[in-house]
Design a protein around this nucleic acid. Structure first.
Lengths: 340, 340
DNA sequence: CATGCGTATGACAACGTTGTCAACTGATGA
DNA sequence: TCATCAGTTGACAACGTTGTCATACGCATG
């Protein structure tokens, strides 16, 4: 296995100095066309490709973008990550993925590790962080984008949606349908704090309209279909007379729906269901699940573009940007105007 | 923003040479306990953390594991990636994720880029590659694990399942149920070649038992619920008298099921359905979707462990390993013994 | 006491790239 | 003719870490 050719080899082959080869290949100014052509031919002939590690060591930052998300098996972040890739395409930036497993302490630990790579940019999920994380972010000299949540106060860029708005949206929908005895089901101790925001604004909007949430159950385990089914049991145990339930996400809602159907409940007449995310499968179940569609791919895409633009223009942090993407309430058959 | 402390700072603080500090922190031998304690205290006091970029430049390889998968929004690889993280935990190895978008040419391009980072290990999906990719892999001096597919001939490590076996498994199930007029639906031009293997062994097993596949439709677009629904239309157009359809994956099957229910078909009496992957939502639809459950998380986990072990022992390539994980056919209500 | 050996520590160079500064070229204008 | 300048090109050092070799020391052996 022969070593990969370096700039030195290219320089020797084209009979110029190393630094000239470097400049020529980077497309800097003050390089004569002849020299550039010569170097490019040499690089081509030798199959040279830049060693980003060496470049990163010399420069202040690498060509890597660190992306921190809770986990991949959650129906939210895969699309975001795909979006980030799309937004970052053609930039030569690589993506280092860090899984933080929810929990801001874990996020802090992972971030500390990742920062050692002097990334060119940072994508975080959510806007709740530990004090130490905040300190590291303040010190970080590059673009930072927080995705999926724009409700927090921060000086960093944000791309996402308003979870407060989402909660209100569904509350209004429930009220419009005429539901009064309403419950809520969440999971993972509301670890992704975004879900808590939705619940709280959901509850507040109900209350503002004279309706008090009858009951809620927050499962300690991560969201999943089966956790949804189990949570449904628990909530119904105490509140068998609920008219409608809002879930922290579609997975929970689908699991609960399945459970309800098994019990012989009629949906939405006996009980109404609504989720959050707008997964494809919402339209596969009968009746279709009412949900709020989130623009996950677009969020990632925009975040990637912000990082890419900042990188391209050579700025450090770049301007702070705040992009709120629209939500859409997609009404399926699991909610309906009562007594219609 | 003060610079991050380096080994030099630690050495100065603890009044030893840089190299001694390096050795002490790396836990090498030939370091006196006193010196080690002194250095560790200094590192602690200064908040030192190793710069992996510099280390990678000096050494032959970085602490990064490159993971190449087609995409994240596909219900297969998110779990694999989570598994890889789990298998890699506590090793200090980071994950650089490369999305190849299916297509082995694109994989080659992404791999070429990624190799510039001198990764400590490689995780690829599938075992079909271009010749140039094969050459790069042969030259790569570290552990390589191919995940999800163990049917190919290769000298690299493989962790996955037999798609040939999966195809046979479902064919046998269909035959046992008594289905004779059988169809197949795939997507993305069978780009993830794994699906083609399943189909072919499915067809062969049928044929071996005297049953010829009546018709198949391969949609050009990537798998999704809606592509499944549309493909169902197309297949039924030509073959309205099918008794059962095997799908390349659950998404397609769920979409088609939804379509069939809309048409008023009774499942499985009018038509039987079966998917592949074993997604949670298979148990949410009515009837539950018959599918083959794949151990996606476990595959990733094992792959991560193989890389981690090789890294820990300081070997280069490590021994070739081949781990075939078991499949489970989970029968739902979408297939049933005919005329029972 | 001389020798040899093993342990502990340090000096130096090297990994490949790039920012800074210096040097060279030829052309312009005084 | 000489100073000036823009346009090119190059030498050097530096990024932070670590492998290799050298050195210093203590101890056991002859």
């Amino acid at each position: 296995m022969q070593k990969r050719p370096t700039l030195k080899d290219v320089a020797a082959y084209s009979q110029v100095s190393i630094i000239s080869a470097s400049r020529a290949l980077r497309g800097l100014e003050n390089v004569s066309p002849e020299l550039r052509a010569k170097v490019e031919a040499a690089a081509d002939a030798l199959g040279y490709s830049r060693n980003p590690i060496a470049g990163s060591l010399r420069g202040q930052s690498s060509d890597l973008v660190v992306v921190l998300v809770p986990a991949m098996t959650n129906n939210v972040f895969p699309a975001v990550v795909d979006g980030i890739y799309a937004g970052l395409s053609q930039t030569g930036l690589g993506v280092v993925l860090g899984l933080t497993g929810y929990g801001i302490e874990s996020e802090e630990r992972v971030l500390r590790n990742m920062l050692a790579w002097s990334p060119a940019g940072l994508v975080l999920s959510g806007s709740e962080h530990t004090d130490d994380t905040e300190a590291m972010l303040a010190e970080f000299d590059g673009p930072i984008v927080e995705v999926m949540d724009i409700d927090g106060e921060t000086e960093r860029s944000q791309v996402g949606l308003s979870h407060l708005e989402a909660g209100r949206m569904m509350a209004d929908h429930f009220l419009k349908c005429g539901y009064r005895r309403i419950g809520y089901i969440g999971a993972w101790g509301e670890q992704p704090l975004r879900s808590r925001k939705r619940r709280i604004s959901f509850e507040e909007e109900l209350r503002r309209n004279g309706v008090e949430l009858v009951g809620r159950f927050i499962h300690p385990d991560p969201s999943s279909v089966s956790v949804g089914a189990e949570s449904f049991d628990r909530l119904i145990e105490e509140h068998s007379d609920l008219e409608a339930i809002f879930f922290a996400n579609d997975d929970l809602a689908l699991g609960a729906m399945s459970n309800a159907l098994d019990r012989g409940l009629s949906i939405p007449d006996d009980m109404a269901f609504a989720g959050f995310n707008g997964l494809d499968v919402c339209d596969v179940v009968r009746p279709h699940l009412t949900t709020i569609v989130t623009p996950r791919f677009e969020v990632g895409c925009l975040a990637g573009k912000i990082i890419a633009d900042t990188f391209r223009t050579g700025e450090n942090k770049g301007p702070q940007q705040r992009r709120e993407l629209a939500l859409e309430l997609r009404q399926g058959g699991t909610t309906r105007l009562r007594n219609a």
